[in-house]
């Protein structure tokens, strides 16, 4: 256990993290590329088409991972913000600042792929389906955090304000999710569920899981890259940055 604590403490010092992240990024980026490529190949070529939706079901291999990971992004942003707030760790705020735009991009991706998928399924691009609507609200929450963070001149103040909003938001995300589902079942007959997770056969499950893993690794790499930028932004005055730059 204390090996982890020393690693956690070491990692909290920005210069150490900066160098470690620099080495770690390729280790996450290359496996992510390989996994996603394999999953795309399986999804596009190998896996069967759906008896009802035909080939459009292949959109699921892109839509579902980005939808799941957008939720994961918001929660991990809130966790990073909470760590930053409680232990006053500047690095944790940098991680939260890095996750927010990545999460917003994924939510946008999930929205657009969901809308495109809606066209063949329901005949129109935008349908107030339960999942798409809660994705939309999640996008608003993400944009709120991003906008609040850079509304403050002082970076540390912006971090702490965005941390409060992220924590308040993460408490509300499940409530929003269920109330939107509740609202959806009240108004529409249960339309064809876009991502019929229950009961999809194994040949479809494999590419989906591979893609989710690929996206996760990609996301970790992207967040490490963005955190390095945020660390540089926050520590540009410090000596280790100047040494780094001059060497």
């Amino acid at each position: 256990m204390n090996a982890f604590m020393t690693w956690f403490y070491q990692m909290s010092s920005p210069p150490h993290f900066y160098r470690w992240a620099g080495r770690a990024i390729p280790w996450f980026m290359w496996p992510a590329l390989i996994l996603s490529a394999v999953a795309a190949y399986l999804g596009l070529v190998r896996s069967p088409e759906d008896y009802q939706m035909g080939h459009t079901v292949r959109i699921m291999y892109v839509h579902v991972p980005s939808a799941w990971l957008s939720m994961w992004c918001y929660t991990s942003m809130a966790v990073a913000s909470a760590i930053g707030w409680i232990w006053r760790m500047k690095l944790a705020h940098a991680v939260a600042a890095a996750i927010a735009p990545a999460g917003a991009a994924l939510t946008f991706l999930a929205l657009v792929t969901g809308a495109i998928w809606g066209k063949p399924t329901w005949g129109t691009y935008w349908v107030w389906d339960a999942r798409l609507t809660s994705e939309l609200v999640l996008l608003f929450l993400f944009m709120g955090v991003v906008l609040l963070r850079n509304a403050f001149e002082d970076r540390a103040q912006g971090d702490r304000a965005a941390a409060i909003l992220a924590i308040v938001g993460v408490v509300n995300v499940p409530i929003i999710h269920y109330s939107v589902n509740w609202w959806n079942t009240l108004h529409q007959s249960a339309s064809v569920s876009v991502a019929g997770k229950s009961g999809i056969d194994s040949s479809m499950l494999m590419p989906l899981l591979l893609m989710v893993l690929g996206f996760t690794l990609y996301l970790v790499a992207l967040i490490l890259m963005r955190t390095r930028n945020e660390v540089l932004l926050r520590e540009s005055r410090k000596r280790w940055v100047q040494e780094l730059v001059q060497s």
């Binding site: 609200v137 608003f140 929450l141 944009m143 709120g144 906008l147 609040l148 509304a151 403050f152 304000a161 409060i164 909003l165 308040v168 938001g169 509300n172 409530i175 929003i176 109330s179 939107v180 509740w182 609202w183």
Partner: peptide, 27 residues
């Protein structure tokens, strides 16, 4: 409280609070 020290905090205030009010509005 979050937007009190921001110059045009009014608009940002609405963007922050309205998504949180979705459940109450629906119910």
């Amino acid at each position: 409280a979050l937007t009190v020290s921001i110059r045009q905090g009014g608009l940002l205030f609405a963007v922050l609070v309205l998504p949180l009010m979705v459940p109450v509005l629906i119910l």
